[in-house]
Every structure is written in C-alpha cells, then in structure tokens.
Design a protein around this nucleic acid. Structure first.
Lengths: 265, 265
DNA sequence: TGGCTTGGTTCATATCATGAAACTTTGTAA
DNA sequence: TTACAAAGTTTCATGATATGAACCAAGCCA
C-alpha cells in the first residue's frame, strides 16, 4: 500500500528506493549504517530495506561487516573512477574549487541541482582552522538553502521558482525554521540584484556562505560555486575580495564547460 | 514472462537490472552507451532499459547528453569518493599496486571475486610501451579466467570450485574457447603446486599474466594481485623476479588488511 | 528470568514492473 | 519532396514480482 510520490517517476519504485539507500549509507559517514538506522532514515519497511541491501551487496555497491553494519562498496569506487574520466562539471571545476579553497583559506564548494534539491558534489577544505562543516560532499538540501543553492534558485525563471517553492515549503517549515518561503523570496530578490548569493548564517547559526551560479554555454544551469566560512570571515570588508575570486573562478569554469558537450536535464 | 535466474536473488529483479546497466555503461568507455547498445548488451527489453535509465538519471547515477548517449553520472563520483574514505581492500592495496606497476614496468592489477565472476577494481599502467590491455578496471570475467582470477579460484575449497565451474561452463564454451573446464582444472592443480597462478596467454593471445591470491586474517578470500604483460616480458628467466615482487607486495597488503575489520561475504 | 532492542526471514497479497506495440524523431536515399 | 529505415521514446493491459505485517532469533540489561 504505497500511494505517495508524484507520477514523474513511475515503474521503478524499487530502483529509486535502492538508490536512495545508497545515498543514505553514504550520508552515514565512516561508521556505516545499521539496518534499523536506514529503516528510520528512509521510512521504508525493514524487510524491504534488507532485500534492497542484499541486491546492492550482490552488485558490490554495498558491503556488510561482521558487526552487521552497511558501508559503501568497492564497485562504487570503480564506477566513480570511471565516471571521473569523462569531461563534465566536476572535471571542469576541480582545479578552480581547489584553488578557491587554498587562496581564500575557507571551504570551497561545488553544488548541483537535483530536482527541487541541491547536492554538494565537491568540497575543498580551506586552511583556516575554524571550519564550517555545514555542508559536506554528498549532502543534500532543498534548493535555496545555502549560498550556492540560493544562487541556483535565483537564476531560475520565476515560474520554476514558484514550483520549486511549492515543493519544498513543507521541508522548510519542518527543518529550516529561519527560512520561511517569504524570507527565501527576499533573498532571491537580493541575489538577483547583487548578482551573487549571500547566506548570512540562516541555515546554521554562524555559518555564512557566498555563492554564484554556473551555466552551460546554452544558458542552462550547471551548478554553483560557493565559499563557506564562519561569520567572522564574512565581514563586509572581506566580501568584495571573496566576490572577485568567486567571479573569476566561475568564469574560468564556464569557459571550460564551453569546451564540453552540455547534458540533458 | 521472465523465468530465468536462480533463486538466490529474489524480490529485486529491477534493482539487479539497474545495477547491471550501470556496469554496462561503465564498460562502454568514454563515449558512453546508446540505448540500442545497452539493449543488445543486457538482453533486456528496450522499454525496460529506458525506464531503468530514467530512474538512474533521476538519481544522478547516469547522465544523458544531447546526442542521447548515456554516461555515468556525478553522483557516482561523489559516492565513489565517499566509499574511498573507508579502509578496505582497495585502500590496503593502492600503494602496493602502484609500486608493483612502477617497479616491474608492467600493468599491475587488483581483482576481487563477485560470485562466479571476477571484477578488476584497480589497474596501474606500467611504463613498458607495449601494453596488454586485456584487463581494464571495471571489467568482469568468469572466475578462473586470467591470472589473478585463476589464483582466486585455485584458493577455494574443492566443492566450491566445482559449483563455480558448473556455473561458468556455458560461458567458457561460448567466449573462451581455449579454456575448457578440464584445462581450467589442470591450471588450478598447477597453481596450487606453484603457489602462484600463471596465465600463458590463454585468454587473449600473447597476453600473459602472473597472479597471487590475497586473504583476510581469518583466511577468507579478499582478492588477487596480478601482473599482466606481453608474452616476451614473461619468459621463464623473468618469472622468479616477478614472483618475488608479487609475493612481497601481497604480504604487505595482507598485513594492512589485518588492521582492518574483515567483511562478510 | 523476562522484557527490550536489533538483525533477519517468511509468505499471502495486490502493486508494480514488464514488454509488445505504437508513436516520434532523425537520417538518408531516391 | 517523399519514402523508407533506424533509433529513441511512450503507452497500457497483464501477471509476475516486490511488498510489509507478522514472525523468529540473538544479544543485552536489570
């Protein structure tokens, strides 16, 4: 008895669930996940989770240790390495993200849109000892939550923003109390005026971010480049400098993307 | 109307198929795969393949370019990076595989068992210009086909060898004409006597290999380390030297594995 | 001992994946 | 320009297949 989900994804419920599990296990960190934990995370039935995990284990995507904890498997390392050989956003951005992290000393992030959500795909630690760990590679947030995410949302046409907002409003109310939809709209306006997105600690207290959207040559959204740091490192006097660096690296990434065939949505 | 498949994998047909597709796309190389090609590869229905691909695309595991070719997606890079953070066979072996490739000048390979098959998970190119490309990371062969694969098979108990042989016999007959089951049995005997596996160009003409099995501290099979080269680089006078290097690196890997919690099958 | 938590399995049920066929698009040859 | 072919994509009736409530087993603690 499973009604849920919109009808854009039909005919592959179990595949969707299995892939969701993979992300959840990844989000569990280095200690892996337990069956009960994954059941709680996903809201799926225990038997279902177990059955899907067995399928993932069979394919090498997941491994299980003696203590019956589940981890991401070696097949993912192999596939990940294969995926890395292709020119894509991550390759185009790699160098820039690293440089941005090293030059600014803060955490440089690359994020992409995934439906009404944002996925952080790359993170370069800055050298500054006080780190903002608000965003780690593999984490997802609703579109608009966080600097890079906000930059992406603001760059969308108004009608799409409206439908995204409709989709994420319940999640915002539930998990991001300081980001109600109307506040988000104000941030979008400001982002469009400034040409850059600033998140003044609205997701996690004291964790600020500055982000800019990246586009393919044909104008389609590719992702966002951003910098995250503690509040003290994002004072007004430092913003122009950070903005300049972000803009420069973003331009470079877009130049590299221009040499690459863009991808379908 | 799908009868097939043994009953070890039950209740997740679509997940199995989706994950199979991922591997196939990976095997397509840098130019990605076409729908028709993947249909031919997997023997699945066109609509089924398409539906599974859409699910994979939704999850970011696959991307599709304007020319409607399918590629491995960025989510795999993220998950692969996450998987790499954990201590496992690939981490334990990384350094040794690289050194083996550099010292011998040939291609060093790390392979693991996946049911009745072998998956190559790592490959370090040697410096020798004439390269054997018989095995690339991500490729699978039946267990016993290739030096590392043979080393793993020979290290299994007799009853398990029998059941593996039963499983792969049709594939051998179909794709590896020079490796009938009885020839494979002889190779297994020889491997057990020598304590190392030699593949004298039986899979691909002129492509030789030397392999040794790796075990977890509790005795369970972990994988195999091997070296592949053209026939001229595997003459009898060079074998003792290669064997020594292989044995040394294998011992080092097993030492590192001993510091790691072993994993369930 | 008995209750509690967590991992894992079973099996009747109806939901969901299936694939043949239709449709669309693209390329190309006449 | 039309005709044809080949590849990508979508539809929909059907029953094979994934589902999850209920169950078992093992470990833990008081």
């Amino acid at each position: 008895m499973v009604h849920n989900v919109d009808h854009t994804d039909t005919g592959t419920q179990s595949v969707d669930r299995a892939l969701l599990l993979l992300q959840r296990i990844g989000a569990c960190g280095d200690d892996g996940g337990t069956l009960a934990g994954l059941v709680a995370d996903t809201g799926l039935n225990k038997a279902t989770v177990r059955r899907l995990l067995l399928a993932l284990i069979r394919a090498g995507m997941v491994e299980q240790d003696d203590d019956s904890r589940y981890y991401l498997g070696m097949q993912l390392q192999v596939l990940g390495a294969q995926a890395s050989r292709r020119p894509n956003l991550m390759r185009a951005a790699q160098e820039s993200v690293m440089r941005l992290g090293q030059v600014t000393g803060d955490a440089a992030l690359l994020t992409v849109r995934r439906g009404a959500n944002t996925l952080c795909v790359m993170r370069e630690e800055g050298s500054y000892p006080l780190r903002s760990h608000a965003l780690v590679a593999g984490q997802t947030h609703p579109l608009g939550v966080g600097a890079g995410s906000l930059a992406m949302l603001a760059s969308l046409p108004d009608d799409e923003i409206a439908s995204v907002l409709a989709a994420i409003t319940p999640v915002l109310a539930d998990r991001y109390p300081r980001l109600p939809p109307d506040e988000l709209m104000r941030l979008i306006e400001r982002t469009r005026t400034d040409g850059i997105a600033l998140n003044p600690g609205l997701v996690i207290d004291g964790s600020w971010g500055l982000g800019i959207a990246l586009h393919y040559p044909d104008g389609r959204l590719a992702g966002a480049l951003s910098v995250a740091a503690v509040e003290a490192r994002m004072r007004p006097d430092r913003l122009p400098d950070l903005t300049r660096h972000l803009r420069a690296e973003a331009a470079q990434i877009e130049t590299r993307l221009a040499r690459t065939a863009p991808l379908k949505g």
